[in-house]
Simulated assay, not measured.
Amino acid sequence: MGKGGKGLNTYSYQEVSKHDKWDDRWIIINNEVYNITNWARRHPGGSKVIGHYAGQDATDAFRAFHNDLDQVQKYLLPLHIGSVQKGEVNTNFSLEKDFRNLRETAENMGLFKPSYTFFFVHLAHIIAMEVMAYLTLYYFGTGWIPFLVSVCLYATVQGASPSWWNHMHYQHHAKPNVMGKDPDVRVDQLFVVGEKMPIEVAKSNKSAMPYNQQHKYFFFIGPPLLFPVYFQFMLFRHIFTRRLWKDFIVVMAFYVKFFYLYTSMLGLGWCLVYYEIMRVLESHWFTWVSQSNHIPMDIDRDTAEPWIRLQMKATCDIEKSFFNDWFTGHLNFQIEHHLFPTMPRHNLYKIQPLVQSLCKKHGIPYQMKTLSQSFIDIVKSLKHSGELWEAALHAHHVS
């Protein structure tokens, strides 16, 4: 280790990689080394998001989450401890250079600028569906047909903590499908996913479920219960443990409005039934749409892959169509959404051809599926992972 300019040290990638512990965390951004050990707790995006890159090059992840570099630069300066040694070999240099050029192209095309008209129309159509849900019961009564029609219309409305959602979602984007880091694959209490998790769970002797049947029981405890049970519990747990009283007020405003409007027509008991059915429908939509892009893809421990390879291994796209765009909320462009998480979703399709071209140049698989095939692949991947668990469990017992 030698001295760099202005009295700062220089470090090799290997030296930086050793600083990946909770109480000792360094990261690399644009070949500069930063000690984030103490500051990570105050990181606006959450300590886990930035901590997931401890000991690694976080250049592209940093750029992906921060559109205004000048604003965040003031936070970096006090954390700067040195630079990466000159002459260090970066085997991904060509790929990373091309990806950064692609981002610059997207910026020059104005693809990071939101269309206020798009978001106004989108919000207006959600509000319109909520109003129609109420008017359906108000004008047509509370019989089964208007009741179910109203529930389906209302299932587009969510009442959640912004802080909790960002806490979960930022981690997922930072390290998608990375075991131990992405909360979306922290599911081994109920399911095993990918190629590695089934074997690890089998060898741990902590098997809690008949995972070889998970492709069957998924239909009963996966989509139906994610929102009504797990999300509701984690939502309020996050709010109360972190004392996020502003978020609590926002969430409670949703519940007060809902029960005030619907209890007068349905009574408290049927109002609760209405709410639970609505959450189950919403949960089905969210589970099938979100997991179709990820569960069938590679799931592994953190191997410090460069940003674009990490995202491409963990995501796939669903074909563009008017229905697919609307039904998925433009999450059918999941690859582009993960590569550029701050890009407004109405622009994702515009960058898709350039991403495909970059992937072709560097031999990176780019997967695109039909909506139906993406749903089928969820079940097929669960079945395959369950079979891996069963085989590994048998081999472990025999040995």
Rank of each mutant, 00 (worst) to 15 (best):
W165P: 01
S264T: 14
A128G: 09
M312T: 03
N177K: 07
L382D: 06
Y154V: 00
V131Q: 10
W245Y: 15
F259P: 08
F233C: 01
L358G: 08
G267D: 09
L77P: 01
Y11E: 00
A202W: 06
L244D: 13
I335R: 01
N166R: 14
L235G: 01
I378R: 07
S150P: 09
P224S: 12
H19I: 00
Y217N: 05
R242A: 04
W164Y: 14
S161H: 10
F62Y: 15
K380M: 12
H169K: 06
I318Y: 03
W326S: 03
H80N: 10
D300S: 07
I81F: 03
A253K: 04
G45D: 06
H337W: 09
K181I: 00
L272F: 13
N205I: 00
L190H: 13
L268V: 15
F231Y: 13
I126E: 09
H125Q: 13
Y53G: 02
D182P: 07
F112A: 04
N347F: 05
M209T: 12
G159V: 06
M209V: 12
W270K: 13
F99G: 02
L358V: 08
S264R: 14
Y274F: 15
H238V: 04
L148W: 11
I28F: 06
P223H: 11
R243I: 05
D184N: 13
L123R: 11
Y170C: 11
K21L: 01
V149I: 15
G55Q: 02
F323W: 14
N92M: 10
T105D: 09
S385K: 07
G45N: 07
M265Y: 12
A64H: 08
E276R: 08
H397G: 04
A395M: 10
M168N: 13
R279M: 13
I239S: 04
G143F: 07
I318M: 12
Q73H: 14
Y217A: 08
V280T: 15
P183S: 08
K74G: 05
T287H: 10
K3P: 01
S161D: 08
